[in-house]
Design a protein around this nucleic acid. Structure first.
Lengths: 249, 249
DNA sequence: GCTAGGAACTCACGCCGCGTCAGGTTCAGG
DNA sequence: CCTGAACCTGACGCGGCGTGAGTTCCTAGC
């Protein structure tokens, strides 16, 4: 009656678990899942308990734990689990933060490279530096929540629209600069049209969120040369603002 | 006049760049940054162009590119850059998605393990499966944006408060179940107090967002046994709803 | 009983981006 | 000239296996 316990050979176990034979061999080498018996010729035989342990390792591995950590968790039984998981989740969160800022940097870089064409390696360096520094400023002036909102807005807009907007800004700025240099009254319809377009583009960026707009304004005024692309940008903003007020009166 | 070009030895370059000597050696082996000259005795001498190239590699490495990819980008000059960056950013985004769901799973697991104590390895398997499946359901029923909102709400609440809430739910459910089993009228003040608490806990989860509450309701009704922790949960919700309506009339 | 071919076995190297000895040579200051 | 710091090359190690290579074992058909 006894002894009809099920036994699997490596290949069979590999097929049913979706793992490879090599993986099971390796886990055996590490002492993570050692087949509880072997044939006289040396072929591995996995029992029910072994199979269960394999599934446990699979589950923990999917959580991103190292095989080393898995071994300790499974052998110590339980007390270590809570600590291991907590340490792991903090590390995952750190990695998430890093990846998020990396993604932000890369997104900007990709659209910028696509718009202006591939830069020469020498320009590349400056470009990356510029974008990275801009991102640092963003992290400094916006809360995590606002950054998330901005990121999702960018996704919704789509890269093409962003590229368009990014290429429209300098043109618009140049036009406004020209009017201001010419001494045109901010109340002029021509200037008001420019101001309206300015606010539209701005709204496309910040979604009309006043907190984001305010943070953006602070960032610009406090870092005119690095971020705004020129120290006169603030004066242009004043000019636009007075134009807007003229329209509303 | 010529020939006063600056030259650096590895140690000096390592100091100024913050890299290690070994790293510069390695980059040389790969042909990534080969010092343009050497002393007669074989000591590496890096010229200005070499140093610039080092900084380019550093910049690209910070973007997460492999040294192999960096080499191709820098040697091909430009055309590959756009493509490489695009491919890389898509891969980063995929990794981000994976990490986000992993973080969600781990968060739930950690609070649950802390609350119930470390489970035996055999229970562990079921626990992980359960949480993973719950997370899949979440991904199925909530949009990315809603998931992000939920994640940030959890962060704001703090793990302790979540643990409290998670331990309060079963108690509350049991109480409501008892009243319902006893046939208590939903309009009774006692039941209304329970219903009020129910809505409070719910609001703590969904932040009062109606779309999230609706998605949550659908998830519960459509997956009673797997997620809700019992098939009678829907009837309890009906009971709570009628109690709420009784209060508002 | 014999044979074929599939499955199992045990080394052992390769990947990526270096860290880290080990053992020998060269440089720079006193 | 001597000494200690800096440099050189070569080699192994990490993690989690993939991918051979060369050998032995199991099983089914004849």
């Amino acid at each position: 009656m006894r002894d009809h316990a099920q036994l699997w050979k490596v290949g069979e176990l590999a097929d049913t678990t979706g793992l490879t034979v090599r993986t099971l061999h390796y886990w055996g080498e590490l002492g993570l899942v050692v087949p509880s018996s072997r044939t006289t010729s040396g072929h591995r035989l996995y029992g029910v308990a072994d199979v269960e342990r394999v599934y446990q390792v699979v589950a923990l591995r999917e959580l991103g734990l190292s095989l080393d950590a898995i071994g300790r968790v499974l052998d110590e039984g339980g007390p270590g689990l809570a600590g291991v998981l907590e340490a792991h989740v903090t590390q995952v969160r750190a990695q998430l933060d890093a990846l998020r800022t990396l993604e932000a940097t890369l997104s900007v870089l990709v659209t910028r490279v696509r718009r202006t064409g591939s830069p020469a390696p020498s320009d590349l360096l400056g470009l990356i530096d510029e974008v990275s520094k801009m991102n640092e400023k963003f992290n400094e002036y916006f809360t995590d929540e606002q950054l998330a909102t901005l990121s999702r807005r960018r996704e919704q807009l789509g890269e093409d629209r962003i590229a368009e907007a990014e290429s429209e800004w300098p043109i618009l700025i140049a036009k406004v600069q020209a009017e201001k240099d010419a001494g045109t009254d901010p109340g002029e319809p021509r200037v008001q049209a420019l101001a309206a377009r300015w606010m539209e583009l701005l709204a496309e960026f910040d979604g009309g969120d006043p907190a984001i707009r305010e943070a953006n304004g602070r960032m610009l005024t406090e870092n005119q040369s690095e971020v705004g692309g020129g120290s006169h940008i603030v004066e242009l903003i004043d000019y636009i603002n007075s134009s807007n007020q003229a329209r509303q009166n």
